[in-house]
Design a protein around this nucleic acid. Structure first.
Length: 125
RNA sequence: UCAGUCGGCCGGACGGCCGCUGCCGGGUGGGCGUUGUGGCCCGGUUUGCUCCCGGUGGAGGAAAGUCCGGGCUCCAAUGAUGCGCGGUGACGGCUAACGGCCGCCGGGGGUGACCCCAGGGAAAGUGCCACAGAAAUGAAACCGCCGCCGGGGUCUCGGCCCCGAGGUAAGGGUGAAACGGUGCGGUAAGAGCGCACCGCGGGACUGGCAACAGGACCGGCACGGCAAACCCCACCGGGAGCAAGACCAAAUAGGGACAGCCGGGCGGGCGGAGCGAUCCGCGCCGCCGAGCCGGCAUCGGGGCCGCUGUCCGGGUUGGUUGCUCGAGGCCCGCAGCAAUGCGGGUCCCAGAUGAAUGGCCGUCGCGGGGGAAACCCCAGACAGAACCCGGCUUACAGGCCGACUGACACU
């Protein structure tokens, strides 16, 4: 595994990303925002991982978080925006999804979160 | 060989690429702080973080549930007793302690190895024992049975039938349970009424540290169950917990103490610094302003609000510490039936904090299924340290070892 990503440490940092641009895949939900405090010299993306108790017992949650972290470590250096923070909320399929698919999901997620599609009005009936 | 009982142990192995974290060693290094001075600069020093390289350690038998017992920390009380509440409950031992463990006793189950038991007190008191049943505990006469009593009917004059008053716990019936059971005697019928045996109660004495076991002899038998109903007895227990507790630093807002200030403004004067613009100081002068409460009012006085300086304390956030060497693991010897204890040797074995101990891939092995085979497919449990120990309980794919029991077969 390449270098693991920087992680979010505080609850407030997680809460700040609520309402950011989001993408939902089979294994996780990604939410992201640009960091506001431009004063900080930090120029690397940061990631937060949320695995709820509904995902299983402690062993299962550990495995899900580690797999997501490993996938991010491989994909993020090329695709993640260093000015942004990201939160990944795990979904039930995260433990069983093949690793290559997990990485493909991430590539798509970065794409969609950086360039959100304009909201498409559903055609009136 | 099959079926079973008990105890102990393991919890896939190896390799490749990449990654996390503790410790140790190294870096002619670099960066950011820190330390010694009254103050400043330079140099070097101390120490910490970060970066790089190398070595080494890194989840469990239950890490789980948080059910008991301790250590440790703070708070409260500071002795003892009483009251209340909670817990435990045969006996002996082990242990730091325990509701744990070992041994033993009693009761129950099993052909057996062996297993199970919330196992003090019901003659201290209160309460409950539904339904059924006549009666449910200082018990009881529904049916039945009986004829020493009284009355009536009938009559073949022996008797028979009915009623009343009684006797009777052997029989029927009810129930989980009905004043112990069987037999003989006995009687109007019966009844421990008497006797024998069994059961029950008391019990000299014997064995055992004890629980307890055996038991001469005595008693015709009285004393039902529930204490996981209240209760009584004995013993034990202060409360909260590492988010305990200790320490450090910065910013912001605000609090307290002390000192100074007719405390604000404008203009002027004097003094000091500077080439100067300007800045600093003032028991100086003039003018303007002078809030709120209390007080009749001018005056005078008090309190609150204010500014400056110094010091102190608290909260939030962050960091450090507590934090891993301990009732410690392994091996050997001795004592003991054992739990365990003592002695010797040896080892250091996770310390994270949005939380590391891993991610991906390959080979082999084990289990199940398919196939004649090569081989293919599918499964791989329960579960993640959070201050540390001793236990208990619960979950668990699959496998290994030892002792023992019962069948069958063979010798």
């Amino acid at each position: 595994m390449p270098k693991p990503p920087l992680t979010l440490k505080k609850r407030a940092e997680f809460l700040r990303l609520r309402g950011g641009t989001r993408w939902s895949g089979p294994a996780f939900l990604m939410e992201s925002k640009l960091r506001e405090a431009a004063g900080t010299a930090l120029d690397a993306p940061r990631f937060g991982f949320t695995v709820t108790k509904a995902m299983g017992n402690a062993v299962a949650r550990n495995r899900i978080r580690r797999r997501l972290k490993a996938a991010v470590a491989e994909v993020a250096p090329a695709l993640a925006d260093p000015r942004r923070d990201y939160v990944l909320v795990a979904r039930a399929a995260a433990s069983m999804r093949p690793f290559v698919d997990l990485k493909k999901d991430l590539e798509q997620a970065f794409q969609r979160v950086h360039h959100p599609a304009p909201r498409i009005r559903r055609a009136k009936p």
